[in-house]
Amino acid sequence: MTDKLSKMLAERDWIMADGATGTNLFNMGLSSGDAPEMWNVDAPEKIKTLYSYAVDNGSDLFLTNTFGGNASRLKLHSAQDRVRELNRVAAELGREVADAAGREVIVAGSVGPTGDIMVPMGSLTHELAVEMFHEQAEGLKEGGADVLWLETISAPEEYKAAAEAFKLAGMPWCGTMSFDTAGRTMMGVTSAAMVDMVEKLDNPPLAFGANCGVGASDLLRTVLGFAAQGTERPIIAKGNAGIPKYVDGHIHYDGTPELMGKYAVLARDCGARIIGGCCGTMPEHLRSMREALENTPKGPRPTLETISETLGGFSSAVDGTEEGGGPTRERRSRRRRT
């Protein structure tokens, strides 16, 4: 039986994903330092509201509130023995919202990094990483998630461990990395290297791509880097809503709904098939993105100049693929347009 995401990808040119989890939950009263995953059992109505923000504003797919739902991250809150429960409940709440949507909506079980450094630089072994990811995956599967969604990964070793764990769980999956260090992940992976890694996996993802990072411009440069490798695997783009700024004691993202609408269209034209937002992306951003995607005809693949003129300059002069002929040029002097 074909999984829901593969079926939707076969029928649609693009799929719209959701926006921010943390930003929305902070606006609902989550305190800095608290584990968002605890709200799955302590404030389930708020988590259903979070999911409804996505569904009601055009998302075809939303992520569960389980980004930090692995044993290593939950241990910081003395909840390492509740991994299965917290992930299961998050997926059950998501299933409830998706099934009431009146249209096909995919529940994607969010799986973030362990927060540990893998050997030889750190103490996290491959076997332990697989065990932690597998435990989380089983909880999400039990709760009814349609697909597992690995995100914000920096280390290729951790990405590979998750792929192995998801195979053990018998679940389809997608996986994104965060290219936040001059076009590379914190551990030095380039867009070209990620494509090479993904295609060599024993259990490759249904779709792969980039999330979070610096800003929308940088993320789209990375998407162009994926596309330049000639991959036929669907690409994911989940960029932040502008650049974070500290305003009145809070982190504020400067991307307007109009800007995010333009980002969504450019992401599609860069080659992304699954398009969403990350940090700072609120319901009004999602609504603008959906309207832009539905009402703007597909255009040619944008140049770096078009991206920087529309969304603002890049944060670095290069993206790590310059020797391979990938996109490199920069327009830092241009003012961000909002």
Rank of each mutant, 00 (worst) to 15 (best):
M1Y: 07
M8T: 00
E11F: 00
R12P: 01
R12Y: 00
R12D: 00
R12I: 00
R12W: 00
D13T: 08
D13W: 03
W14K: 02
M16I: 08
D18R: 09
G19K: 01
F26M: 09
N27Y: 10
G33N: 03
D34P: 05
D34C: 07
M38C: 14
N40W: 08
D42E: 15
P44W: 07
P44H: 03
T49Y: 10
Y51P: 08
S52N: 14
S52K: 15
S52Q: 15
V55S: 13
D56T: 04
D56K: 08
D56R: 05
S59M: 00
L61C: 08
L63Q: 11
T64I: 14
G69F: 09
A71F: 12
A71G: 14
R73L: 06
A79P: 02
D81Y: 02
D81C: 02
V83I: 13
R84S: 04
R88C: 14
V89L: 04
E92D: 10
A101R: 03
V105F: 07
A108Q: 04
S110W: 06
V111L: 15
I117Q: 04
V119W: 01
V119E: 14
M121P: 01
T125D: 04
E127T: 11
V130T: 05
V130I: 11
M132Y: 15
E138W: 06
E142G: 07
G143Q: 13
G144W: 14
A145P: 06
L150E: 04
E151M: 10
P156R: 14
P156Q: 14
P156M: 15
Y159P: 07
A162V: 15
A162C: 15
A163T: 15
A163R: 15
A163S: 15
G170C: 05
G175I: 07
S178A: 13
G183C: 00
T185Q: 12
M186G: 02
M187K: 09
V195P: 09
V195D: 10
N203T: 13
P205H: 02
A207S: 08
N211W: 05
C212H: 01
C212V: 01
C212I: 00
V214K: 04
A216C: 05
A216K: 01
L219W: 01
L220E: 11
L220M: 07
T222F: 03
V223T: 08
F226R: 05
Q229F: 09
Q229W: 10
T231K: 12
I235F: 08
A237V: 06
P244A: 13
Y246A: 10
D248R: 02
H250K: 15
I251T: 01
D254S: 01
T256Q: 08
E258L: 00
M260V: 04
M260R: 03
M260A: 05
M260H: 03
L266N: 05
A267K: 05
D269E: 06
R273P: 06
R273T: 09
I274Y: 02
G280C: 05
P283I: 02
H285Q: 07
L286H: 01
R287A: 09
S288T: 02
A292W: 04
T296V: 10
P297E: 11
P297G: 10
E305S: 13
S308E: 12
T310K: 14
G313R: 07
F314R: 09
S315P: 02
A317Q: 11
V318H: 10
G324E: 14
R331N: 07
R332C: 11
R332L: 11
R336I: 11
R337W: 12
